[in-house]
Amino acid sequence: DLGKQIFLEGSGDMPACAVCHMLSDAGSEGEIGPNLDKLMPDEARVRIAVHDGVGVMPAFGEALTEAQIDAVARYVASVAGQ
């Protein structure tokens, strides 16, 4: 799963999502950003957060391709809260 891979490893200039976010499916325990299992964002919310940033979360619209952003958004939305 490309989305899970990006979540766990990052890509290019983007660090792994797992560094900052908790998500049980990925086994990540980051505590900097919101706990995604509690937030349970839908695909659109993940996509715009990754693309544009949120608060201190940087924008990764330049670091990732649209296909990569779509993949990570699909992954997070499908497993968060499970």
Binding site: P15, V19, C20, G30, I32, V56, M57
Partner: peptide, 13 residues
């Protein structure tokens, strides 16, 4: 505190 694995400037307040 900022965790290892990210540039502190990217998320510090």
């Amino acid at each position: 505190s900022i965790p290892d694995g990210i540039d502190p400037l990217s998320v510090m307040v």
